[in-house]
Design a protein around this nucleic acid. Structure first.
Lengths: 111, 111
DNA sequence: GTGCTATATAGCTAAAAGCAAATATAGGTT
DNA sequence: AACCTATATTTGCTTTTAGCTATATAGCAC
């Protein structure tokens, strides 16, 4: 499952792909509709779409000639789970000392 | 700001780095403490730490010989903001149709 | 100062990822 | 069948990234 997170985060690390996701959040769109606003070639967009699909972030369906894409519902869930996980550990250790940690500098070296 | 997100997501796309963050969520640790559980060389860990630092995910302080690292509080916030942003767009367009979309297949091609 | 420890930097190799241009495939239309 | 449109795949090139070993720097202990 670590690999899934790898792919999810890696897919999100590209601004073009994040823009595509934001676009798809507004609703389904075909490849050419998605590609239109970008200065990039169509093959490059197709490649980005494949990365997003492999990461499980989008789904495609077949409509004759086209392959309309839409957001895969809840796929960002795994990402949030990881975030929550780390935050829970953090909270368990520091509880509400966050503010203190925030400006703690070099006092109380560890050992 | 897009670049910041790029770096944040890219930093999180590596399992070693996510493990380091999870470790640091438990509390401050020196470079060698962090490196210990990994099969990787120390320089490689140092490199990962630099990536995390450049992404603003961790902070380091100076303690004599060591460079203890800790989580940068709230840096994952920007990531969550982006998530929320996309989700708001999504929600605005589909509201509570999520369940429907979930198993909507190829019905009602979009014009 | 000598030498040990902690960490960073350099140099190198290999693998991955990005992009564009060209080509292939598949559907639609006439 | 001929041709046009939508999309995918391949090719070639360049850049980035990860990892290793070796080396450098800086603090500490003697």
């Amino acid at each position: 499952m670590a690999q899934a997170l790898d792919r999810t985060f890696a897919a999100l690390s590209d601004p073009t792909r994040r823009a595509i996701l934001a676009r798809l959040a507004e609703g389904e769109a075909t490849v050419s509709e998605i590609a239109a606003p970008f200065l990039m070639s169509q093959p490059s967009i197709s490649r980005h779409l494949k990365v997003l699909e492999d990461a499980g972030l989008i789904l495609r369906r077949v409509d004759g000639n086209r392959r309309p894409c839409r957001l895969a519902p809840d796929t960002l869930g795994a990402l949030e789970d990881w975030l929550d996980h780390v935050r829970r550990i953090y909270a368990a250790n520091y509880d509400r000392l966050d503010a203190v940690l925030n400006d703690l500098q070099s006092q109380e070296p560890k050992t």
